[in-house]
Nucleic acid binder design. Structure first.
Lengths: 145, 145
DNA sequence: CTATTTCATACTGATTTAGTAGGAATTATA
DNA sequence: TATAATTCCTACTAAATCAGTATGAAATAG
């Protein structure tokens, strides 16, 4: 049930971009790499996926790097992780075509659980935006000031 | 984010045992294997884990096999899968010791999401019993009869 | 022109997965 | 008591996946 480092590092990377391009500045891989302590070569490959999907935009050359492709409140965790992870489902048979070809599909009672898990995870992912991830927590009492 | 075949096959196996030992009969690996279309040699290894944890009990020799170790309404999916899967958490850093040793742990905002996913999954697993899995669905209207 | 950056493709060592193999120990039954 | 059916135990292995490296081309600001 473990996430790959692509998902793990990729989310940290896009959070880093969101937080460090506030004035419209592009955030370079080498900056992300040193802040997040992740190999820059590996980050390149991971961020390429984010780029391809449009979640981030890039600029080449000096002072180049990456900025968000959309407003952080319009990017949710499902968008991000489904781009980064090869498959986000807990089992292959979540794909209806795989399920129908499964030689046990009409007696399988286990699948009920996989469906429930999948729904629970998707619910979290789709209801958490990138903005939710980067905004400061309001500590108890602070809202009175 | 995918489950291993140990978790997948293991749950199918214990469901199979629950359904086929109704009269106190032991269910053999070869029977489970043919019904579930899973290699018997591999099943042996998987069911050994269930045995070791006490979720199933065994009897050797002729007419031997496995029966549940507890009432199916007292076995939940968390019990089963945490025995079958090596780690059920989405990231290593769900383990607090790993988290504290992480060189980014005091700036990491990504972890909030991993915690939410973990809670959502555990919630499903702990609130679904083996009895829930094997009981027949009551179809709409049927409860009136 | 040059330094800095992304972009594209290919390669690789280590680890994990999904089993297989061989045989010992136990037990019901004929 | 012999035999067939079963679990139990340990070791092995081929293939896939993971996590990362390596090389260098293309673009761009100054």
């Amino acid at each position: 049930m473990k996430l790959s480092t692509k998902g793990e590092y990729g989310l940290r990377a896009i959070i880093d971009i969101a937080e460090n391009s506030k004035n419209g500045e592009y955030v370079s891989i080498s900056d992300i790499s040193t802040r997040q302590k992740i190999s820059d070569r590996y980050l390149e490959k991971i961020i390429a996926k984010l780029k391809k999907s449009g979640l981030v935009k890039s600029s080449r050359g000096v002072n180049g790097g990456y900025i968000l492709g959309k407003d952080p409140k319009c990017i949710n965790m499902f968008d991000i992780l489904s781009v980064l992870e090869d498959n986000i489902d807990v089992t292959e048979c979540m794909d209806i075509h795989v399920f129908e070809k499964c030689n046990n599909h009409y007696t399988c009672k286990a699948r009920k659980l996989w469906v429930k898990i999948n729904e629970a995870v998707e619910n979290v992912l789709k209801n958490t935006t990138l903005l939710d991830m980067i905004k400061q927590e309001i500590k108890k009492g602070e809202e009175i000031e």
